[in-house]
Structures are given as structure tokens and as C-alpha cells.
Design a binder for these strands. Structure first.
Lengths: 223, 223
DNA sequence: ATATACTATCTTGTATTCAATTTTGTATAT
DNA sequence: ATATACAAAATTGAATACAAGATAGTATAT
């Protein structure tokens, strides 16, 4: 799921622990509302509370946990409103990334992806192989982020997505979503091939808006 | 310049110090490339290195400083590419906020601002009072962020802007910019009054793109 | 039985100490 | 004079120790 390993703070213990905890929280191995006790974590990672506190500081900045002074840290709960807000930010930011990637990529750069989405995935999805679809989606996403050539945008969009990663995954699993998503991506990739950035970003928005609509419909099941 | 004091971490020393340093860095009281020495800061704020390290951790997460393991922290230098990237993200994100604020605000909510931008500021700018223009701009911005009703977007857009606040201010001071900006804002506010979110966001983009063009033209003077 | 006050315990916030790495300065060899 | 090797000082990273606030439990009063 990681996109770029550039300035990872993997050198310090606190950085490593923060990464680990982030992964666990984003994938809900550590569930929403869970209390994060410093001494407990220090014992688990056999380190001092100092580094744990530094790691918690990072997670707080990234918006993954809430810290109440003198009371401790808990994993942030995803409120409905917050998920909606995240969808909205993603709609505009990822549209931007698609727009730029369309303009920046070399000629025919999206042809391969178009082929995969138009043919291979069609059958795989029909046979229930959602995992393959998700993997390709992730690859396309990664490539789009690279081609957008906007490191700062990538940084923030990844930060935001990590706050609602499970939502994204659960929506993909909804009946019919994968195929509908595949078709929209085929359309988007056609625009990208034609260097029609305006058209591509419009479809990208459509993709995210439709995911958001599904969330609104099934939120009781998803959240 | 602060927009919302909601979940400020002003309760802990490290939080307070981080806020203070952020303000100093964003306003370039502490210049780019400056080395931040832990012991030195600890002495200045008469606190322990522990809290300083926590504060530096926050600033690193916010992208304001760079920390090299075992070597220390320096205030990030604004590269040309990075400023361009920030302009691009702002263009899309602030367009979104304008779009939403236009749809969300009650009827006639922007009338007062329109009056100020259309009349009062006209003369003030003509007489060289850029400060007033900047203050009104800030008020409009604050109101837009509130009306957008998207806390997460606000959070990220503020984070991003803090990385290039001086650039924004210096561009406003460029000859002719204030008046040109005023006129564009009048147009934008007309759209907002008419609840034409599409039109309003288009002008907002125009505003940011024109600022970006000025940056490209005068970057040797601005950076 | 319920509510309040108090104490003991637990948890977080901060300071201090120790360890590891980097930087700086000096001496020596070429 | 320049380069290398080594030692000392400075700086950051991590662990421990101490202080302060919050929580839980108990005793007392009503």
C-alpha cells in the first residue's frame, strides 16, 4: 500500500514504531476507539516510553489518534461526517493528480493499464477475483501519483487516504462495485491515453463520487 | 493568521513550543536552512530536551523542518519546485473550499464582503494601503473555511499554506497585485452571492494561478 | 443506601542520565 | 602543504527517574 519510501524516518526507533502502528490502525488491526497505553506499547516493542511517546506524537499529527492531555491516546473513531469530508477532499485532490498525470506521462503510457482494465480484469472480476482488481487499482494509483510529479500532493493524499483506508477497501467489496469501477476506469484511461486531462479528471471524480454514494447507502454496514 | 483554535495541543509544553516555532518558521523569523539545536532551544524555553524533541517531531510531521538521524534538524528550504507544487495543491483545494462555501452559506452571506472589496478597498489600495487589503483577504478566507464545513480540508489547506506563507505575502506586495486581486475577488464574490459555485471556484482558481504566474516571473526576488 | 471526601494507585508529562554517533581539532606521516 | 589517524568534544538517541494529574477504591457522614 505504501507508495514512496523516500524520506521514511525508519532510522529512529520512534519512526519505525510509528510506521508499524500506522499500518495497524489504517488496517484496523487496532480498532477505532482503542486506548493506546504508553507503558503497554513500550513493553511490546521492548523500548522506553520516550520513543513510544514520540511515535504517538507522529500519529497524532497524522490525525490517526487523539491525545487528551494527562489522559492518554485513543485511536480516532471514523465519524460519518469525517468520512464524507475525506471523500470530498479526495475527489478534488485525486482529480488534480489524474489531471497532471495525464499531461505529464509519455505517449501511450497508459495503454498497458487500459488493456488490463478492459480485458483481463473483466473476466477475473466476473469470476469473483476482487483481489486482482484491487491490486491493479493500487498499481494504477501508484503510477498516477508518480506521473503527477507533485510530491507534496502525493504526501497529503496518502495521509488522508490512510485515515479511511478500510472504508475504501470495504466499498470495493460491495456487490457490483468492482465491475462498475472497472468500467469507469476504462473510460478514464481512454481519456488519459488521448491526453484529455479534463475528461480524465472528470471521470476520476465520478469514480470517487460513486464510491461516496455507496458509502452513504451502506454506511451502517461499512462503518 | 490562525483560523481555528479547536484541537490545539496548547496543554503540553511541547505543543506550545511547537506552535511558537511553527509561527516563527512560517513568518521566517527563523530563516530557511537554520539549524535547530536541541540544547539551545531547551535553554531558550527553559525546558528539557525531551519536550524540545517532541516539538521538533511535530514540526517534522508538518513538513516545516528536516531531521537527519544523528545529525539534527534544519528549517526546510523552499525549493522552486516545491512552491509550484504547493500552488497547484492550493489551486484545487481552495477551489473546493470556495465551491462548498458558496453552496453552504446562507443567502446574502457574502454581500458584506462584496461591498468591502468593491468599494472600501478600492480607495485604500489606490492609496497604498496593502495591509487593509491583506486583512480583508484573511477575513474572507477565514469565513470561507468556516462555511465550507469541511474540517479536514481546512486542516490540510492550513498545513500546506504554512509552508509557503511568506511567498503569499510577498506576492501581495508586488506592484499592481493587490488591485488585480481585489477585482478578481469582486468577481468571485458576485458568483458566490448568486450561489454559482462553479463560477466562484473558477475565479478562485484564476486568482491562485495568477499569483503563481507572478511567482514564476519574480521568483528570484521572492524566494 | 447514597453521596462525599480522602487516600492509594495508576498513567501521563517532564527532567535527568546514559549511550551512541558525529563533528572538530590535533598530531603524525608522506 | 596535504592527507590520514586518532582522540576529545559536542550533539543526538534512548532509557531511567521524578513530578503531577487522573482514576479507582474505601471510609465516613447523611
Amino acid at each position: 500500500m505504501k507508495t514512496d519510501g523516500e524520506h521514511t524516518n525508519a532510522a529512529t526507533k520512534s519512526g519505525q514504531i510509528a510506521e508499524l502502528l500506522q499500518e495497524r490502525i489504517a488496517s484496523q488491526i487496532i480498532g477505532q476507539g482503542t486506548r493506546l497505553q504508553e507503558a503497554e506499547l513500550a513493553a511490546e516493542f521492548s523500548s522506553s516510553r520516550t520513543v513510544i511517546r514520540e511515535a504517538l506524537g507522529s500519529l497524532e499529527q497524522r490525525g490517526l489518534i487523539t491525545r487528551i492531555p494527562n489522559r492518554g491516546a485513543i485511536v480516532k473513531k471514523l465519524e460519518v461526517d469525517e468520512v464524507e469530508e475525506i471523500f470530498e477532499v479526495r475527489e478534488w485532490l485525486e482529480a488534480m493528480l489524474t489531471y497532471r498525470a495525464t499531461l505529464n506521462a509519455p505517449d501511450g503510457h497508459w495503454q498497458a493499464f487500459h488493456g488490463i482494465f478492459d480485458f483481463e480484469l473483466k473476466n477475473r472480476i466476473a469470476s469473483g477475483d476482487i483481489k486482482s482488481y484491487n491490486d491493479c487499482l493500487e498499481q494504477l494509483r501508484t503510477e498516477t501519483l508518480i506521473q503527477s510529479r507533485n510530491k507534496i500532493a502525493v504526501q497529503y493524499v496518502n495521509l488522508i487516504l490512510d485515515r479511511a483506508r478500510v472504508i475504501k477497501n470495504r466499498i470495493t467489496l460491495l456487490p457490483g462495485r468492482a465491475e462498475a469501477g472497472r468500467q469507469m476506469h476504462v473510460r478514464m484511461l481512454e481519456f488519459m491515453n488521448e491526453r484529455d486531462a479534463e475528461g480524465a479528471q472528470a471521470v476520476k471524480r465520478e469514480i470517487i463520487r460513486s464510491a461516496r454514494a455507496l458509502f452513504q447507502k451502506y454506511r451502517s454496514l461499512i462503518l
